[in-house]
């Protein structure tokens, strides 16, 4: 499709938890202009793999990653890579909405503040407004920015978490089953939001829901038992899978 170099590349990635191998030799390219979906049955390692992309597995005792992961050609696991900066460039949204128990404003302002991105108070307020607007939450909360972020509904909380992630202006946003704790209406809002954010950020989304993958993504990767079974354009994966296992999963034979 495009000839631009991929935003992130992973090649030959293995992940171990102690002696157990969770990910086996996975290679994937993530393109800047696409939404990439990881699908697969529970425990297949798609979330584990997602978390290797911004080194969130570092904090899990016994977790070990080998292979090569690059962000714009830079080795993510290099000694010289600053994890703090990496995570500012590769943001993350989690399965359960996890706003800080602080005000809505403080939730969004936290990232820019610790990275010194705002030059002034007014600048910070502008960043907060822009992030909340992009996350489609501004109109709902603009009159109560001082309220606690935890007082919002589940769907609003998740959009607040997305606003918080984009406030530090990341290049990539990783979403780990962002809709699994939400009702269908809130899910639809988030999917719309992913459409709107596409292109501005490279987005990787892990999902259980194949319809969701089909709706929001341009590229889909199917994981099974820690291995990448098939990776390609979403339309191909869902209409014309090359692998038997992919076809079985998509048609609901297992999972």
């Amino acid at each position: 499709m495009s000839n631009a170099p991929p935003k992130m590349t992973a090649s030959g990635v293995d992940v171990f938890y102690g002696a157990k191998q969770a990910i086996r030799n996975v290679s994937i390219d993530v393109r800047q202009e696409d939404v990439t979906a990881f699908i697969g049955p529970s425990g297949c390692g798609k979330s584990t793999f997602l978390r290797t992309l911004n080194r969130m597995n570092d904090t899990i005792p016994g977790a070990r990653v080998s292979g090569d992961i690059r962000l714009d050609g830079e080795d993510v696991y290099a000694k010289t890579m600053d994890v703090v900066q990496l995570r500012a460039r590769v943001g993350m949204v989690f399965q359960k909405p996890n706003p800080f128990p602080k005000s809505i404003f403080e939730n969004v302002a936290y990232g820019p503040r610790i990275h010194g991105l705002a030059r002034s108070r007014a600048d910070l307020a502008q960043i907060v407004e822009r992030s909340l607007t992009r996350a489609g939450l501004w109109n709902e909360v603009k009159d109560r920015l001082g309220d606690s972020g935890t007082a919002l509904s589940g769907g609003q909380q998740q959009r607040l978490c997305i606003a918080r992630a984009i406030a530090v202006d990341p290049e990539v946003i990783l979403m780990d089953e962002p809709c699994s704790a939400l009702d269908p209406v809130a899910t639809a809002r988030i999917e719309e939001l992913i459409h709107d954010l596409r292109g501005r950020y490279a987005i990787v989304i892990v999902t259980h829901n194949m319809q969701q993958a089909a709706r929001v993504s341009q590229r889909t990767a199917f994981f099974h038992l820690g291995q990448l079974v098939e990776y390609g354009d979403t339309s191909d994966i869902f209409t014309n899978p090359r692998e038997e296992r992919t076809k079985d999963y998509i048609t609901g034979r297992y999972g």
Binding site: N54, M56, V84
Partner: peptide
């Protein structure tokens, strides 16, 4: 303290000391 709060702060690029003292 719920681990999800630590994850949230870490994913924003907070250093370990910031995670501890801010959250």
């Amino acid at each position: 303290v719920p681990p999800s709060i630590r994850d949230a702060a870490r994913a924003l690029g907070a250093s370990p000391v910031q995670v501890v003292f801010h959250h």
